[in-house]
């Protein structure tokens, strides 16, 4: 886990890819994130993240068919790999454990 830790932005990208399922390529991912998180994402930042995740083996990608719309360039569709899923689950698990370990009083602000 320590070796392949996932940053916050990466986690969001991976989750978005999973959400989009069959339609996860550069533009849709970008739009989805922008829509849900209400923040701007540059193509560069997103591409770098996708690239890094793919290198780590959390994502896999394949080319779609060429379309006239994009100047004839093919889309690269991303999928979360099983390994990626494990990683995401472990992040969630960690968080959940953390949440579970929080003593009730910690978030009870009545007495503070």
């Amino acid at each position: 886990m320590s070796k392949n830790s996932i940053g916050e932005f990466e986690e969001i990208v991976m989750l978005t890819v999973a959400v989009l399922y069959n339609d996860a390529y550069g533009i849709t991912i970008k739009k989805e994130i922008e829509e849900r998180l209400k923040r701007k994402v540059s193509v560069g930042a997103m591409r770098t993240a996708l690239n890094r995740l793919e290198k780590k083996g959390f994502l896999s990608s394949e080319f779609g068919e060429a379309t006239a719309v994009r100047g004839g360039k093919r889309k690269r569709y991303f999928k979360v790999t099983p390994y990626g899923k494990t990683a995401l689950e472990s992040v969630m698990e960690t968080r959940k454990q953390l949440w579970d370990s929080i003593p009730d009083v910690a978030f009870d602000f009545k007495f503070s």
């Binding site: 550069g26 970008k30 193509v43 100047g71 360039k73 889309k75 690269r76």
Partner: peptide, 29 residues
């Protein structure tokens, strides 16, 4: 290939509203 495709797609989309803006955004990207 796909980076360029993404940018072009975005550009096309943006240029529907404003061509100048699309150009600038393309360059920034």
């Amino acid at each position: 290939e796909d980076v360029e495709g993404d940018l072009v797609e975005l550009f096309e989309e943006r240029s529907r509203s404003s061509k100048v803006k699309a150009n600038v955004r393309f360059l920034v990207d």
